[in-house]
Simulated scan of single mutants.
Amino acid sequence: MAQTNELNFKGTKTSEKISENIHIFANDPSLAFFRIQEHIRKVLPPILEKRTEVLSLQSSLQGHCYDMEYGVQALKSIEKSDSYFHNIQEMIKTSIFLKQQLKYEENKKRTKRDSIYPTLVL
């Protein structure tokens, strides 16, 4: 009888272990999917937030690149206008010289008028 009880106990234990293993194998994929779903729910909001931030930064960076390209084009056009600036500089020098001549002539006429001895006109 002891052997029968022992055999029954071992048979029951073995069938419980087999049943437990079958239950684990049957539910293991759903547990894996649950863990994946749990991970996605946990990680997805920060990823979406970072994606939105990256898209915003990309848009801002693209705007800055356009501004920089515009600035480079402006500098290149200024370099091309070197001859125009040289002509303007020459015109300013000529204007200053002519202004000085006019001032000199004006001062010369004034000194003649302010003279004690007026010149006789014949």
Rank of each mutant, 00 (worst) to 15 (best):
A2M: 03
N5I: 10
N8A: 08
K10D: 07
K10P: 01
G11Y: 02
T12M: 10
T12K: 10
E16P: 00
E16Q: 12
E16F: 12
I18T: 03
S19W: 02
I22L: 09
I24P: 00
F25C: 12
A26D: 10
N27I: 11
P29C: 03
L31M: 12
F33I: 14
F33P: 00
F34T: 11
I36Q: 15
I36W: 13
Q37H: 14
Q37F: 15
H39S: 15
H39Y: 15
I40P: 00
R41E: 15
K42M: 08
K42A: 08
V43H: 01
V43M: 05
V43N: 07
P46K: 01
P46N: 01
I47F: 02
E49C: 04
K50H: 09
R51G: 01
T52N: 14
T52M: 11
L55N: 11
L55I: 13
S60K: 12
Q62K: 03
G63E: 02
H64V: 09
H64T: 12
H64K: 13
H64I: 07
H64E: 07
D67R: 06
M68D: 10
M68L: 15
M68V: 13
V72M: 03
V72N: 03
V72G: 04
A74G: 06
L75R: 00
I78N: 05
E79K: 08
E79Q: 12
D82L: 11
S83Y: 08
Y84R: 14
Y84G: 08
F85K: 00
F85D: 06
N87Y: 08
N87D: 05
I88S: 04
I88T: 05
Q89V: 07
E90S: 07
I92S: 02
K93H: 06
K93M: 11
T94N: 06
F97I: 14
L98Q: 12
L98P: 01
Q101N: 06
K103R: 09
E105P: 03
E105D: 15
E106M: 07
E106P: 05
K108E: 07
R110I: 11
R110L: 12
T111R: 10
T111F: 14
K112S: 00
K112F: 05
R113W: 03
D114R: 05
I116N: 05
I116L: 03
P118A: 09
P118D: 04
T119V: 15
L120P: 00
V121N: 12
